[in-house]
Design a protein around this nucleic acid. Structure first.
Ligand SMILES: [Zn+2]
Length: 330
DNA sequence: AATGCCGGGGA
DNA sequence: TCCCCGGCATT
């Protein structure tokens, strides 16, 4: 342990990036864990900008710790996302039918290239994880994740083969509640949806069908659309390799509907209190009159969110200055 | 509570 | 011009 690098390295600029990425994993590999974490504050101490240095210090600390207790911090966004989905899928299907599987997910490979801004060039392993925090592959990282039911399982499916198509309401929707009988709708094959409710195996041909089915039969609810974020299976928020892990996410489907995020265990009270009748349809803009004074705050994550505070150094300058991000433009 | 970023301020 | 942050709108 005695990795020595002087304050310069910490000074933000191209060189630092390297030093950090190289030194840390290395240090960790050694005998960092012996409570030396503190030691990591070192040199840092005398920096010019005091205010900043404190921050830096803190950040550094964070980084260190995170790389310690997360041995293989490896696992890229994509994978994480998938894990969740997969988990959800698996759980869901397990709960009932042995019917099909086949994930409808479609993680839009890499972000629509907009790295420009000569800033830091991540370029690391493969399409997904840019920059790979702790040693991309090879040595000094014995234990490999090999998650329970991981993305790997269907990595193969997600080949950049078909660029854009497939993935529409049907797919998006069924992800949330029922299973479609897969296979590209190409081959004159009708897509079916199966209700995965406890002991129900009803099969309908339309998403709307089971949707209604679920609502009426299982939930005792029947009314308009209600949007819900992905499925949140009770026990799936498990493995999240805490620490720094950002995710590149793909655009969420235009309109997603589902039958209320109830847990697979029966019950059906449903407060009936309020219905989001007006699902803000993203179809057209009727009253184009007022050029909405609202600033929609561009969708999509910016450096801050993507890299996280602990990696502030990787943000684009604009973001660091708290200005409009210039790397992930809208 | 977290993000995104305008506006303003100090070298 | 480079750098940073208060503070507010948005999520
Ligand atoms: Zn940015």
């Amino acid at each position: 342990m005695t990795f020595t690098f002087q304050s310069e390295d910490l000074k933000r600029d191209s060189s630092k990036k390297m030093s950090l990425q190289h030194l840390f994993p290395l240090a960790v590999g050694e005998d960092m864990k012996t409570a030396d974490t503190k030691k990591a504050s070192w040199v840092l101490d005398h920096e010019k900008e005091n205010t900043r240095s404190i921050c830096l210090l803190e950040q550094k600390r964070k980084v260190v710790s995170s790389s310690i207790d997360v041995p293989p911090a490896r696992k890229s966004s994509e994978e994480l996302d998938m894990d969740k989905v997969t988990a959800a899928m698996v759980l869901t299907s397990l709960s009932t039918s042995p019917l099909v599987r086949s994930p409808p997910v479609r993680p839009n490979e890499g972000l629509s290239g907009s790295w420009k801004e000569g800033g830091c060039v991540p370029s690391s392993t493969g399409s997904s994880g840019y920059w790979s925090w702790g040693a991309p592959s090879d040595q000094s990282n014995p234990s490999t994740p090999s998650p329970p039911l991981s993305a790997d399982s269907f990595k193969p499916f997600r080949s950049p083969a078909q660029p854009d198509d497939g993935f529409d309401e049907a797919e998006a929707g069924n992800l949330l509640f029922d299973e479609p009988i897969p296979r590209k709708r190409k081959n004159s094959m009708k897509v079916m949806f199966k209700c995965l409710w406890k002991n129900c195996g009803k099969v309908l041909s339309t998403a709307a069908g089971i949707q209604k089915h679920i609502r009426t039969i299982h939930l005792g609810v029947f009314n308009g659309v209600l949007a819900t974020p992905p499925v949140t299976i009770p026990g799936s928020a498990k493995f999240t390799p805490n620490g720094s892990s950002f995710s590149i996410s793909w655009q969420s489907p235009p309109v997603t509907f589902t039958g209320i995020p109830v847990s697979p265990t029966h019950h059906h009270p449903v407060g009936t209190g309020e219905q989001r009748q007006h699902a803000h349809t993203v179809l057209s803009s009727p009253p184009r009159g007022t050029v909405s004074l609202r600033k929609p705050r561009g969708e999509g994550k910016k450096c801050r969110k993507v890299y996280g505070m602990e990696n502030r150094d990787m943000w684009c300058t604009a973001c660091r200055w708290k200005k409009a991000c210039q790397r992930f433009i809208d």
